[in-house]
Design a binder for these strands. Sequence first.
DNA 1: CTGTTAGCGCCTTCAC
DNA 2: GTGAAGGCGCTAACAG
Lengths: 345, 345
Amino acid sequence: MPDAPVTLSQVAREAGVSLATASRAINGSATRSVREDLRERVLETARRLGYSPDPSAQAMARGRTTALGLVVHDIADPYFSTIAAGVADAAEREGLIVTLASTQHRPDRELAFVELARRQRSRAIILAGSRLVPAGEDGAAHDAALRDSLTAFRDAGGGVATIGQALGDLPVVEIDNAGGAGALARALHDAGYRRFGVLAGPARLRTAADRTAGFREALVELGCAASDDDVVPGEFTRDGGYNAMSALLDRAGGPPEAVFAVNDVMAVGAMAAVRDAGLSVPGDVAVAGFDDIHTLRDVAPRLTTVRIPLDEIGALATRLALGRAGDEPAPVRGEVVLRDSTPLR
Amino acid sequence: MPDAPVTLSQVAREAGVSLATASRAINGSATRSVREDLRERVLETARRLGYSPDPSAQAMARGRTTALGLVVHDIADPYFSTIAAGVADAAEREGLIVTLASTQHRPDRELAFVELARRQRSRAIILAGSRLVPAGEDGAAHDAALRDSLTAFRDAGGGVATIGQALGDLPVVEIDNAGGAGALARALHDAGYRRFGVLAGPARLRTAADRTAGFREALVELGCAASDDDVVPGEFTRDGGYNAMSALLDRAGGPPEAVFAVNDVMAVGAMAAVRDAGLSVPGDVAVAGFDDIHTLRDVAPRLTTVRIPLDEIGALATRLALGRAGDEPAPVRGEVVLRDSTPLR
DNA sequence: CTGTTAGCGCCTTCAC
DNA sequence: GTGAAGGCGCTAACAG
């Protein structure tokens, strides 16, 4: 029996009140209030009939939805799924529904989803993926389009937060990628390492570029700069790490003492490449990552990394987008966590 | 400049046609068609004005939304995030927006979200988390409530798919957990193992219970049954695996030859526990998991597991819910993948 | 405090 | 093939 959803007017009729009163009794109203006994009666019949409001209709009437759009590059990547968990949790607290877009790293889909969320009149949009490096031919154009769309959305009353790097003057939970990578470089230097390699990730992604640059700059200051040959690009994935590390190992001159993979997922792939080459971590090459992905914490040897509290960042971005975070939060500084993959040397 | 979203009637006016014609030109209409030049004109001005339809309004007018609800236990868990990636991808192909609910293992939230998606008139709902073991006092009641709600949703025209185990006679992408675990037991037996332990996961979850039971039943057939003492429950997480393995190691009688953790995440925690106890994997204890989580494939030693194509399952469930999958799909049988964590013995 | 009345943006019969 | 008009379920002025 396709039970047609019961509507507010049915509830009103059944309870013997007007539509407006029923609406006020159920949803409350900023201005008007409703007599206690009437409210009781309405609520009771609503419950009895199994009424619940139609979000689309409310959205229409109110001019805004109860949805929060979350845009990530790839929800299967633990970096993003951890952020998503934080967002989902915070959104639920606010009574918002999260609509998820996993763009598979396609900038056009990123923009398309922002446009969708905008015309959908979402309450807020959270953009979690990395910005692009301006140098990229259309990177700048894409980010500009994204910025304009989000700015228009915000000007129309929508909440916005980006994660990672700032986009225009939109609210941002900034992650100090360069600083964290620099701190890691110094920690590894303190541990006795001198010759470094870097698995730099995709050159077009700001997150990857910033981590790489922060690491290399610190190395320069420490007096053991990595040459361009020691820096290998690759995808932001396990396979990207594997391939980049393999390339590094194939170079003449032997492997560096320590390799920094710009995220944990790549680091794990890199460790596999080392083993497949018949070498050992950290015996022949030490390896460090970035992010401190929870499920990757226990690889053997345990992975040195820079901890970023991704779930908190997701929650914080949600509050920020909703205007519940007070001032713009300070950049999130990662914490270097030395583990077995980079022992004292 | 808060540019109010442009509406269809603006487009119509600008193009010099009626609202109805504009609507037909843009959305197409089953019955009426519109003259070529007019359609062109409408489409052109729509593009120029940056028009795009308001999903809420369409939902109201059409009586159904363009949303697909996805319910998972914990989006940060790679099992679910991989499924989510498959769902997101397939949904995007169908032009649907996915709304995500991460229930954090709270059954009441699971039900609440299904109710929400239902009154929201979502196009479809995909329920990805494990069902509960009937034995549990309110497990049966909860699953019954869930089943009733989803059945009512389907009877009202909504699409439904569950993942893992069947719920009533609702469409399901079944996963042969017991069969996969049994096959794993036989493979380990073939490899020479005889004394087994099991990290059984949460007793209330069907997925965990089925994997445990399938493994144990196969052991019985093989003539090397595991005693109840060899089976330790625990959370479905890294820490759950760690603690359960620690408990197993503390037992009198020394560790089993091989331990089956009912999912990869637990297996990784278990391996950490072994190492922290000063023992080695697989030297002192062999370890196997289940799922073949991509990012966990490279832990060292590489993890023996049962491969489940989670992303395909997500995509398949999406098509199934939308009625695009033809017949009910056959149960997904896992594939045993032997790796270094369980060498020949 | 309660009821009446417009819409919100779009689709869809129904006339033309 | 096109346009006018009603209505989806609800909220928010407006009266009373």
